[in-house]
């Protein structure tokens, strides 16, 4: 699957909550190739500062229109610049990068928190309407604006918040053991903060359910060349960008 440098035209972007934006770009060469779990590396401006591209998971594609979606939190220099990009602007985007999720699950459960819910959205789309269930966790109800994006793809949604303002009070671990025991899931896909992924991976291991994790590490090239995003594997170093970002939970030795 060839990777390309696309001159992607911005279709538009909108706010999802106070600090999170969704952006659609026209880049058929990437939209047609990308599979759930892959990411792209975006040059947010042509200057040398900020110098490096910013990696974002693909949150969905529209092959008919040649567009794909990214969702990001406005958090640093790069994303502040990206937030000001307008429809018609052109972004240089390298992708699609990395390996996607295993799609062979019969009854998948997606587990995510924060921006980890972006690549999982594309995964839910990949499984098709109604096939995957989702368990999402956030600190407050405001962080679970994702339900609107998921409601058609995943009719069965389980929610947790740290403060109890939506769904069950606690982390996703408040619900996961019971879901694993009674839900009949044959594979869990988790993407979110490291403590969440670690806890979910361990619970799956204990319950004997397969589990894939999607990791995030600081990276420069996204191509397997710079070795910035190394992650401890079993007996070897893994490159998150090229060997991942999706791994089987048991491949990751860092936890």
């Amino acid at each position: 699957m060839p990777k390309t440098i696309a001159e992607a035209k911005v279709v538009g972007q909108r706010l999802l909550n106070s600090s999170t934006k969704l952006i659609d770009v026209y880049a058929p060469e990437i939209a047609n190739q990308a599979v759930p779990g892959q990411f792209v590396n975006v040059q947010v401006c042509k200057n040398t500062a900020p110098l490096l591209r910013r990696p974002f998971g693909v949150a969905g594609v529209n092959k008919e229109q040649g567009t794909f979606t990214m969702i990001y939190r406005i958090i640093g220099e790069g994303t502040h610049i990206l937030a000001d990009v307008c429809a018609g602007d052109v972004l240089s985007i390298v992708g699609p990068l990395g390996h996607g999720f295993d799609m062979s699950a019969g009854k998948p459960l997606l587990v995510g928190g924060g921006l980890g819910l972006a690549p999982l959205l594309f995964l839910a789309e990949g499984f098709g309407e109604g096939k995957a269930d989702i368990l999402m966790g956030g600190r407050t109800a405001d962080e679970l604006f994702w339900t609107k994006l998921y409601e058609e793809l995943c009719p069965e949604m389980f929610l947790t918040t740290d403060d109890g303002s939506a769904g069950t009070k606690g982390t996703v671990m408040a619900l996961l053991p019971q879901l694993l025991a009674e839900g009949g899931y044959d594979c869990v896909y988790v993407c979110g903060p490291v403590p969440m992924m670690r806890a979910v991976a361990n619970a799956c291991l204990e319950a004997g359910v397969k589990c894939q994790v999607s990791l995030e590490k600081y990276m420069a090239c996204g191509l397997g060349a710079c070795l910035s995003c190394a992650c401890e594997g079993i007996g070897k170093r893994l490159k998150v960008c090229k060997d991942g970002p999706v791994f089987w939970a048991e491949e990751v030795g860092e936890w």
């Binding site: 500062a49 900020p50 110098l51 490096l52 420069a220 710079c226 070795l227 910035s228 190394a230 170093r237």
Partner: peptide, 20 residues
Amino acid sequence: SAGNKGQRAVETPSGMLNCI
């Protein structure tokens, strides 16, 4: 050689630091 542990790269003004 396995290289270094911990964060290995970070962007700086018009550049980057690495300790692969």
